[in-house]
Structure formats: structure tokens, C-alpha cells
Design a protein around this nucleic acid. Structure first.
Lengths: 349, 349
DNA sequence: TTGTATGCGTTATCAG
DNA sequence: CTGATAACGCATACAA
């Protein structure tokens, strides 16, 4: 039997037509067989021939070519900041379990980096995707949503998390409401000396939904504002700040921490200083990472609805991918206040 | 002036030729201008025209088409398990800072999922990349390396981390040597009752470099082996195991934990039971995540050389991408034993 | 059921 | 310096 073994020159990889030659049929038929489509009728015989030839040659479709002609890539982009954070890592973890059951591949792009350093989405946009889910990037998300029609007018896009743009589809998490509840909880406990803890480098120190809720609640209650700025969210920096509070005898009776790490480390640092968590001081965190439950004194936190957020975002993205002319869908989720020991036994003053 | 505004039908996005029409020049010239290449000479005038037209139309080159003809994508794939782990998240973080300075985009693919669930690399391979760095997947990495010549014969590939395949380029981390040092440390302290702690679900419970080192050192010292199996690496499960040890009064004098999380949680659970860490018991972890230093009693750990590992892998990948016929480069790094309080004051028996 | 032919949006070669 | 034009590898409308 005559067999052509010449493979295409450029990539060194066998192409569709190599398979076709090997199987003695046309390239189109190879495409049909390998397309996996059931509405195409192919004789069992040729199907077998194609499959065998493809296997023998180790044929893998060229994704670029496929994307070029079909306009589809089978990839969804997940845009997120890869800067280390437990919460983000958990979201990433959940997102992957969600997409595992589907037939799309997930490509994670570090987008905050992209935007903050270069003010362009060039790199992230380089990855050819059928749709984009963007998570929790205040600046970059709104920038992208604004330029969307210019940058990627045809790519379904949904943002999720605490920041979103009204312009496109999103699954928002209303941190403001979560923070309101947390403040209400502290106020109900009778607290008056409540401080807000956040890194001063972020724009969160005196703005954003958490701070707004804090400021508003304090103002309503006629209480004075108090901000504790930490250098960055690391144990060392949080510790420095806490030690300073104790040293200067200016420790508040309650701390509203901008995230769980800050809360956990504050608790630990204070505990080391002899401060009794949940007794001498109340502590509240944000996000609801598992570790808050595992602390010596479990910490009250405003839990983000990770599962629901991801599921909804994926549901919406699927809908948009199925019909990209469909109107944007917008849903807002509310985080849950999880009350634990760190605010339970507190004696108010 | 006559202007054609018809845009290409399929994607809704303007194409190179739309720009060409707009600027009244040929498509080829548009390509040249936008290629960014300096060795091509173009009159300042036409360059300006092209740039303006491109800007006005909001033209973005189609990455699939570009990849198809050039054979390059400007993307490197980072293959890693996205299952939550602090160590992995740290590696991810460092990798992004490394690639931030370059002009390649990083696309992260969840590869453990890919291989373990489907036994194929179809999804990960779908993302068109110029090179691949694979991190810490024992099963999937060796499977891929084995099938490499069939699956992606032309894509530069380097694996890094504790598992690698001799077949391709890699930056290995010799956990065995790190574990040897840890065991030596414990033995030097005079310990005799040393147990190895790992999840029984993993294949790490009685194999792998950590366990091998443990087994070997114990055998050399003529000491009996002891394994503490935990259900999974979560605080709850570790706690259950530790409580059981205390309850049955069978607590060893030293624990070699398969990772830092396990070590931290063991320490915490035992501490809650009144066991004095670093005194009643010695604890050693693996990986070297920051949290080990921030524990009430800082924990001794075998620190992975994240920075060096990533840098080396990237250096090698770059070399392979520049010349894909270059021979594989293989380097092995040795982790560092970081001694802290958790093993310092221990009284041996 | 299968083959032929065309086009997808670029890059790159080769003339002009 | 610039314009045709031939790949690139594949999907699909149209024929057979």
C-alpha cells in the first residue's frame, strides 16, 4: 500500500491533510470526523480509517487555524490578579472545579498586573478566547468595560466580585451591605471605639464599600472615626501596627479589618501581647476564608459567596456565548455575616 | 474624501485590510507598520497614516491569524494544579512577577485536573503557546513528558518543582535532600520517636522523596517507623488526627509533616490541647511558606527555592524558545532547612 | 456519504 | 519604500 509520510514543514506537526493522505480520503472528511459533530453522517468505515490515521500520526488540530476559520477557540479567559491572596486562590480553585465539568479550557491571565503596569490589555487579549470572566479588579475592570467596544466588541464578557461596571454583564458582591451588617453587629454589641484597619497603600484606606459602610455607621451612631493603617498585608506589618497600638495604649475595642488575613494576623499579634480576643477586643474580617474558623479564637467574618458568584458568572457567560447579542445580565449577591467567638463575648464599653 | 466603512463580517472586528482601505495603502504595509519591526523601512508619512487609521478603527490584530502564519503566539503556558495550596499560589505569584518584565503573556492552565480526570492534555494544549513551564505535577508531568514527542514535539517544555522527567528540560527541587537534612536535624537533637504526617489519600503517605528520606534516616538510626495519616490537608482533619494522638497518649516526640499547612495546623491543634510546641514536641514542615514564621511558635521548615526555581525555568525556556533544537537543560536545586523555635528547645528522650 | 473549492486574517517573499 | 500574492491549517458551503 502506498503511503505518503511527508509532514508539513513549518511546525513539524502533522496537519489535517497529512492525516487525509494517510487515510486516503479528503481533508474535509478528516475535519468532519474529528469535529465530533453528530449531525454529520459519516460511514463507519471511513471514520475508523480517519481515527486510525490520526492516531498513528499523532495528529493534533492546530488551534490557531481552527480558531481562525471557526471563530471559536474553546477557551474561556479568567482574568484575575495573581498577586497572592488566599481569597483569590480559593476563587481560582472553585472556578476550575466549575469548568472541569465542561468542555472549555480555562486560561488564567494576570490582569491587574497588565493594567497597572502598562495601562493596556494587550497581553491578556493575546490569548484567544471565546469569553472572559474578570474577577475583582476595580481599576482594570472598569477601564476594560469602558474600552470594551473598541478592544473586544465581540467577546462575551462578565465581571464578578466586589467591583463591576454597569456597562456590561456582572455578578457583583455587595460588600457595602456585608460591611453594613458587620458594623450593625458591632454596634449592637454596644461598641463605641471601632477602628477600620487597612493598608494605606491601597485605595481602600479611606474609600470603597467597606470603608463607606464603616464611616456611615459611625456617623449615624455619632461615633468618632479611627483608621489604623498598615504598611502591607503581611504578618510582620500587621504585627508592627498592633504592637504600636498596645504600646501607645490606644487600642480600640473593636477592629473592622479589610480582609481576613489582616483580621487573623491582628488577632494573633494582639494575642501575643496578652490581649484577649473576643473579650478585650472584637475583631471582624472580610472574605470568609477557612482559616478564620481555625484560629485559636474563631473570627467573625463577612463571607463572600464564592460558589454562587462563580456559578452565576459562568451561567451568564455561557448565555452570552450562545447568543452574543443577548442583553447583559446583571446580578448582585450579598455576602453573609458569620458571627464567631472573636465578637461574641466582647464586653462593650 | 472617499471612505469605505465596511467591516469584515465574521467577527465584527476590523481587519488589517479595513485599516489598509482606511489609510489608502496596501494591507502588506499595514502589517509592516504594525509588526513593530525596526528593520523594515517605512516612510514616516505612511506610518502615520496607518497608525491613525488603526487607531480610528480600533484595530486589534487577530491573534489566531497571526499565530497561524507566524507560528508564534507570544504566550507561554504555565501548567499547574489550581487546587488550593499556599505554596502553589506563591509560585504563581512569583511567576507572574517574573514574566511581567517580559513581552510574553502568561496563560495559566489547570493541568492536574486535565490529566487526572480525563487522562489527556487536550484542554491545556488548546491554548496556543510558544512554550510551556509545568509545575509540580508528578503524574501529569511524567505522562506529558512521555507523550511529548507525539503531543507537542515542537513546543519548548520545561518542568520545575519536586517532580520531573529526565526526558526533557527541568529545574528540579531535590526534596529528598531537603528531607534528609530535616531528619538529620531531628536526629541530632536526639529524637527517637519521630512520626511522618501526610494525607493517606495522596501517594505521599508511604512514598516520595519526603517519606523515603524519613524511612531511610529512621532505618539508619535503627528507629521504628511511625506514620500519622490525616484525611485531607484541612485544619479540621489535622485537628482530628492530633486530638486522637493526644487522647490515646501516643503522641510522638517529633513530627515530620509533608507540608507547612499540615505542620502549622498540627502545631495549633496540639497547642490547643496543652502540648508545648518546641518543648513537648518538635515539628517540621515543608515548603517554607511565610506563615511558618508567623506562628505563635515559629515552625522549622524545608524551604523551597521559589525564586531561583522560577527564574531558572524561565531562563531555560527562553533558551529553548530561541533555539528549539538546543539540547535539554537540567538543573537540580536543593531546598534549605530553616530552623526555628518549633525544633529548637525540644528536649529529646 | 464524500470531495472540491473558498475564505478566515496574517506574515513574508518577491517583484516593482 | 510599497504592493501583489502565496502560504498557514482548518471549517464549511456547495457539488457530486
Amino acid at each position: 500500500m502506498y503511503r505518503t509520510r511527508v509532514q508539513s514543514r513549518s511546525s513539524g506537526r502533522p496537519t489535517r491533510d497529512d492525516v487525509a493522505r494517510q487515510a486516503n480520503i479528503s481533508g474535509a472528511t478528516v475535519s468532519r470526523v474529528l469535529s465530533g459533530r453528530l449531525d454529520l453522517s459519516i460511514s463507519p468505515d471511513t471514520r475508523a480509517k480517519v481515527l486510525e490515521a490520526a492516531k498513528e500520526l499523532g495528529y493534533i488540530p492546530n488551534s490557531a487555524a481552527r480558531a481562525l476559520t471557526s471563530g471559536k477557540t474553546g477557551i474561556v479567559g479568567f482574568w484575575v490578579s495573581l498577586e497572592y491572596s488566599r481569597y483569590r486562590a480559593h476563587v481560582l480553585d472553585y472556578m476550575r472545579t466549575l469548568l472541569r465539568g465542561t468542555d472549555v479550557a480555562m486560561a488564567v491571565s494576570d490582569v491587574d498586573e497588565e493594567y497597572n503596569f502598562l495601562h493596556t490589555f494587550d497581553r491578556a487579549l493575546r490569548v484567544p478566547v471565546d469569553g472572559i470572566i474578570a474577577f475583582d479588579n476595580s481599576a482594570s475592570i472598569s477601564a476594560f468595560a469602558r474600552e470594551y467596544d473598541r478592544l473586544a466588541p465581540s467577546i462575551p464578557f462578565v465581571s464578578m466580585g466586589a467591583y463591576w461596571s454597569e456597562l456590561k454583564s456582572y455578578v457583583g458582591v455587595d460588600l457595602r451591605q456585608g460591611a453594613d451588617r458587620a458594623m450593625q453587629h458591632l454596634l449592637d454589641l454596644g461598641h463605641k471605639q471601632i477602628a477600620y484597619v487597612a493598608p494605606w497603600t491601597s485605595d481602600l484606606i479611606d474609600s470603597g464599600p467597606r470603608y463607606d459602610a464603616y464611616e456611615n455607621a459611625m456617623a449615624q451612631a455619632g461615633l468618632p472615626l479611627r483608621t489604623v493603617a498598615i504598611e502591607r498585608v503581611t504578618f510582620q506589618h500587621v504585627k508592627v501596627a498592633m504592637i504600636e497600638l498596645v504600646r501607645t495604649k490606644s487600642l480600640p475595642k473593636a477592629l473592622l479589618c479589610m480582609n481576613d488575613e489582616t483580621a487573623i494576623w491582628s488577632a494573633q499579634a494582639l494575642s501575643d501581647q496578652g490581649v484577649k480576643i473576643g473579650q478585650d477586643i472584637a475583631i471582624v474580617g472580610f472574605d470568609g476564608i477557612d482559616e478564620t474558623a481555625a484560629c485559636p479564637v474563631p473570627i467573625t467574618t463577612v463571607r463572600q459567596p464564592i460558589e454562587e458568584m462563580c456559578s452565576e458568572a459562568w451561567r451568564i457567560l455561557k448565555a452570552q456565548m450562545a447568543d452574543s447579542s443577548a442583553p447583559p445580565q446583571q446580578v448582585v449577591l450579598v455576602p453573609t455575616l458569620v458571627v464567631r467567638e472573636s465578637t461574641r463575648g466582647t464586653s462593650a464599653d
